[in-house]
Design a protein around this nucleic acid. Structure first.
Length: 110
RNA sequence: CGAGCGGACUACGCGAUCGCGGCGCGCUUUGCGCGACGAGGAAAGUCCGGGCAUCGCAGGGCAGGACGCCUGAUAACGUCAGGUGAAGGCGACUUCAAGGAAAGUGCAACAGAAAUAAACCGCCCGCCGAGUUCCCGUUUUUCGGGACGCCCACGGGGAGAAAUUCCCGCGGCGGCAGGCAAGGGUGGAACGGCGAGGUAAGAGCUCACCGACGGAACGGUAACGCUCCGUGCCAUGUAAACCCCGUCCGAUGCAAGUUUGGAAACUUUUCACAUAGGGCUGCCCGCCCGAAAAGUUUCGUGAAUAACGCUCGAGCCCGUCGGCGACGGCGGGCGUAGAUAAAUGAUCGCGCUCGACAGAACCCGGCUUAUCGGUCCGUCUCGGAGA
RNA sequence: GGCCUUGUGGUCAAGCGGUUAAGACGGCGCCCUCUCACGGCGCAAUCCCGGGUUCGAUUCCCGGCAAGGUCA
């Protein structure tokens, strides 16, 4: 499905301030309901050099894209936790788990 | 065959599905579809150099900084190429911030006799050493008092009955006056090294060889090399200490900067008001100029934003010519990322040696650092074996 | 992305060619005391790492690494 990127500093700050938080083993999700779905990934310097940070961002975006097939519109911030290794499978599992827990999925996944 | 040396290249591959970025084309223009393209050798560190942009022009001097054998290459360089010299390696080859220490100043701990200059020990000649010594009083000498000294072994000769004493010689020891710099447990470094002659002992005092310095000829564009002659030689190290000499450098960096982001008029306040303040460079000369804030009225309203800068450039590939080479000339061909919270990923299948370091952010030329491996080249080197 | 600064015991730090690498707080051990505190004595440093210059570098030079600051 299509979603927007959450880009502006102001928007991200608003989500961080007012959003509801949900936790899983490998990541944290912050979200507020909104008109259309928007998402951002937060990966700071503590995750390593640029190659490592880009890798995390790609994995998380892919996990979000493949798990949020049908989602009630909201602004989402995905914040991973610092680990030794990162895998797509773990991110996919945890994104699904977190979305399910907060009952954001309109149609339950098969 | 083994061990090396130098150089060049490469950086998992193929297929399928879903997805991402800008571009082009098409459409029913929110968007959708199709198409080709889409990170590196270091994209990194930001250590140099240049383009580009702004500071009105980029002007002068000082300060400051960088570089430092020679010749060339280049837009330029601290880079590269070819040479010179020095050091290392059996060798192929590698490494080197490699100008000046007789312009001046500083520093050289500890050790050592002595540290940038000479004499502590030492070596040698002479003189003295059971009083031909010195001082005071008296004084012709004598005499009186005091100070210091009156060493050891051997040989020869003389006197004497002997103890002992006198003379001479040689050596040591001590003292005095000189000569010398050969030797001396140090040190990073001790007025050149080593051998011979020479000498009382010694010394470039003399000589040979090596080194140093000066001059000339020859070779080389030059650094420099080589030969000859001369000077017997005097002046340690450090300039990645200050410094001197030579060459170069205006500053700031794409968050530069340009356009839109409101414009115009009026009023008020604050600072400054000329030997002032601000700007152009840290300072001086020189040049330019008042600056900032608030309010009201009319049209206008997106604001760490949007567009430009932004990718065709000292570009890449092939051929050929010139050059030892870096590189340059000529001809032909190619169109090859331009994002802005920032694009390359996921899954499946097959193969293998099971995949390192790592992600463009204005662009180039270098340097440096990180890196699992693999491939190729060479009249290349050393060792072993065979023919 | 550009431009700068700093690395010395656990912490804050001085030193800037030859030191046994000052000092303060803290830690540990011993002494003092009936005990604690105070006091006294002692111990603990790869001078961020690797090269170079020098007889000799914490210090000078070069290259890394790690922190921090600043510019719309």
């Amino acid at each position: 499905m299509k979603y927007r990127r959450l880009k502006k500093t102001k928007d991200i700050a608003r989500v961080l301030k007012t959003g509801k938080r949900a936790y899983a083993e490998t990541l944290q999700m912050v979200f507020v309901p909104s008109k259309e779905t928007a998402m951002a990934v937060c990966v700071g310097k503590k995750f390593g050099k640029s190659v490592a940070r880009n890798r995390i961002k790609r994995l998380l975006r892919e996990a979000f894209r493949n798990s949020a097939q049908a989602i009630s519109p909201c602004s989402v911030l995905l914040i991973p936790k610092v680990k030794e290794e990162y895998s797509y499978q773990a991110f996919l599992r945890d994104v699904k788990k977190v979305l399910k827990k907060e009952k954001l999925l309109e149609d339950p996944l098969p």
